[in-house]
């Protein structure tokens, strides 16, 4: 690997190059002291530089010792075991859970996008409550951080959803659900209200600290990730770079802290040669960022969730309803008579 690929300040980089260190391989066997002497940098700087150099002598995967370019890789088998132990947060609708492979997965970014009013926020609030369902009920039993950028988080609604969830659990097993209280549930949803893109970026940077403080958190919701990035941006290339950077940090957080990250996205109109259609906002490059993309939409008076992108699951669609209790399976009995019958 070239020394140029290391994230070094330009001045240090040129000193290293001047001293003849062109590849990282050349740096592997050097001690900090030697490096500081030869490249004419301080001992502290040299230590930092050497930390950046990838080590190739880490024995990582059991009996199999991988070195060189394969350092740090795992086998597919390990991944499979890992996958099975993944925590999954139920959405409230078993149909939707099914297409998601059991629910919203931890350690991954899941994007929910849809037209205004289709229930993205309701979905997210439901997840923030459902993540707290204790393990004995097959839940995750974690806390939630909810980052509200649009001001659409409704405390009253969360209260209602929580009451419904606790009622459900009580019906299932009165004994073990006895000490579940609405207060506890609401105390374990941490709300951050973000007003501009700067605050949003700051939250992303501070997320590791927040998660260190609240170790129980298993779900982080950005509702929405889009809003602040759709106004006041003149430099579109800059915006794309910032978004990519943000996504990268979020992915690292999801992995390191074993949390599920849900990103709510808006839709926008895209004009094509055949007219215009609604597409998720933030552009093409953003589409590659999220591991899973769940589209929620209306069709013939029914809400549907459509898994449009997933690395491990087939594309699938499931109907769902939003009732007073929250997100639930669509059943015929839920369809109340309509006010207007279509004419002729």
């Amino acid at each position: 690997m070239d020394v140029l690929t290391l994230a070094l300040p330009p001045s240090q980089r040129s000193k290293l190059l001047a001293a003849g260190f062109h590849t990282t391989a050349a740096l592997v066997s050097v001690t900090p002291f030697q490096l500081s002497q030869e490249a004419n940098i301080t001992l502290e700087e040299a230590t930092v530089v050497l930390k950046l150099v990838p080590r190739s002598d880490i024995d990582h995967v059991g009996a199999l010792s991988l070195s060189g370019p394969l350092t740090g890789s795992t086998t597919a088998w390990d991944l499979l075991i890992h996958e099975k132990n993944r925590r999954k947060i139920g959405t409230g609708s078993t149909e939707v859970d099914k297409i998601l492979g059991g629910g919203v997965l931890s350690k991954e970014l899941t994007e929910i996008c849809g037209v205004p009013g289709v229930g993205k926020t309701q979905f997210s609030m439901q997840l923030a409550v459902n993540v707290q369902i204790p393990a004995e009920f097959g839940g995750v039993g974690g806390h939630a951080i909810y980052i509200d950028t649009e001001g659409s988080f409704m405390m009253e609604r969360v209260l209602q959803i929580t009451e419904a969830v606790i009622d459900d659990l009580r019906n299932k097993s009165p004994a073990s659900a006895e000490d579940l209280t609405v207060e506890d549930f609401l105390s374990h949803i941490y709300l951050l209200r973000v007003h501009d893109p700067v605050e949003q970026l700051a939250v992303v940077n501070t997320l590791p600290t927040l998660l260190d403080e609240h170790k129980e958190v298993r779900l982080v919701v950005f509702d929405s990730v889009t809003f602040n990035f759709r106004q006041d941006f003149e430099d579109m290339a800059g915006r794309t770079r910032l978004l990519a950077n943000m996504a990268q940090k979020l992915m690292a957080v999801a992995e390191n802290y074993d949390v599920a990250i849900v990103l709510v996205n808006q839709v926008t109109h895209k004009v094509t040669s055949e007219g215009s259609r609604t597409v998720p906002a933030l552009g093409e490059s953003w589409s590659h960022v999220c591991t899973n993309r769940l589209m929620v939409y209306w069709m013939d008076g029914q809400r549907y969730a459509h898994l449009a992108k997933s690395p491990s699951l087939p594309v699938g669609t499931a109907p769902y309803v939003i009732t007073e209790e929250g997100v639930r399976d669509a059943q015929e009995s839920h369809k109340r008579p309509k006010l207007v019958e279509p004419h002729g």
Binding site: I145, H188, A202
Partner: peptide, 13 residues
Amino acid sequence: ISAKVCPPCHSVF
């Protein structure tokens, strides 16, 4: 910088 700018975090309750 982020810690300074980051909005406060309160529980819903």
